[in-house]
């Protein structure tokens, strides 16, 4: 085993990525940490201002303005969207694993929405969810659910229901709906995992007289927990990073009434419209730390409920 040769070759083969790591990650990472303590507008040189950007962030979180508002919106989007995507992903995968004919066609149809470009999907949904002309409200009205405002209403489903007892999804719910439409990626992963569950387990359970529901809860679900965990982490990251659809449906402004001003958009606008790179860098770093903490917490709790078989 010629280890020196291997060593040099190792670095040589990894060198494009290593270069990328330094240029596209380490340098930006360090630079944005430094800028988060500066005032910087991209044109004039950065100016050290200490922790001012961070105290402003704390203030905004306390008052629910700026970053605070964006954080609340993003939290809503993730807290509603991720659990629903898990639920929907598993449901669809289970349906696709039923032993009936034509599953290949159904699988294709279920997955198709997740390859649709986000820009096109946004255009489509803006039209489908139009409060007056859209087909969604046409359907809802015909089953007596009224004509909610969707992307044109700043309220959200839960607080409106809490206050008035009516079903009136708003802009954030519309974005959740759009994200659920593209649940196909997770669905395919669940489907693969379902295929990996040993048949013998089911057969044994059936011999013991376990019904379909019991089999699902005691065999299938535990086998899926690693994927649910993966879905949870990736879903959280995707919710926080979602940008294109939000930019397009909110006209790049978080409208109506800032209800779709999510962290990604707020950060982008702070940087390139309010020309406040320092503040935007602080937002990015805080976001990174929050995500890291959330992911670590998930990893910690995962030991209790994620089942790694085999």
């Amino acid at each position: 085993m010629s280890s020196t040769r291997n060593r040099i070759a190792g670095y040589a083969f990894a060198s494009p990525w290593l270069g990328g790591l330094v240029l596209l990650y380490l340098f930006p990472f360090a630079a944005s940490l430094y800028w988060s303590f500066c005032r910087y507008d991209l044109i004039n040189p950065p100016q050290w201002i200490g922790g001012e950007n961070y105290t402003r962030l704390a203030d905004e979180i306390a008052t629910g303005t700026g970053f605070g508002q964006a954080l609340a919106n993003t939290a809503y989007y993730a807290a509603v969207g991720v659990p629903l995507s898990i639920l929907l992903g598993i449901t669809l995968a289970v349906l696709l694993s039923l032993p009936v004919r034509g599953q290949a066609i159904f699988r294709t149809l279920f997955f198709l929405p997740s390859v649709i470009p986000v820009v096109a999907a946004s255009i489509l949904w803006m039209w489908l969810l139009d409060p007056k002309e859209g087909i969604v409200n046409y359907g809802l009205a015909s089953i007596g659910l009224g004509t909610p405002g969707w992307l044109q209403s700043s309220g959200d489903m839960f607080s409106t229901f809490w206050r008035t007892g009516t079903f009136a999804p708003g802009s954030k719910d519309a974005l959740v709906l759009m994200s659920l439409w593209g649940v196909g990626n997770f669905m395919v992963i669940y489907l693969a995992a379902l295929g990996d569950v040993p048949k013998s387990l089911y057969e044994a359970a059936q011999l013991d007289g376990a019904g379909a529901m019991r089999r699902f809860l005691h065999i299938t679900l535990p086998m899926l927990t690693p994927i649910i965990f993966f879905n949870l982490v990736m879903g959280l990251i995707q919710s926080v990073q979602a940008f294109t659809q939000i930019y397009i449906v909110s006209e790049g402004r978080g409208s109506p009434a800032g209800s779709t001003m999510m962290i990604s958009l707020q950060l982008f606008l702070s940087a390139f419209q309010h020309l406040d790179m320092g503040y935007a860098s602080a937002v990015a770093w805080l976001l990174f730390v929050l995500l890291l903490v959330a992911t670590l917490l998930l990893f910690r709790t995962s030991r209790r409920w994620v089942y790694y078989g085999g």
Binding site: W17, L21, L23, L24, Y25, F27, P28, F29, A31, S32, W35, L42, V233, I237, V240, Q241, I263, S264, L267, F268, A271, M277, A280, S281, V283, A284, W285, L287, F288, L291, L292, T295
Partner: peptide, 20 residues
């Protein structure tokens, strides 16, 4: 580290990348 970069939100590196 490679796996870690997958978890990193693109916002953190967006501005420096632009400048680079």
């Amino acid at each position: 580290v490679l796996i870690g970069t997958m978890l990193l939100p693109w916002h953190v590196t967006m501005i420096p990348r632009f400048l680079l």
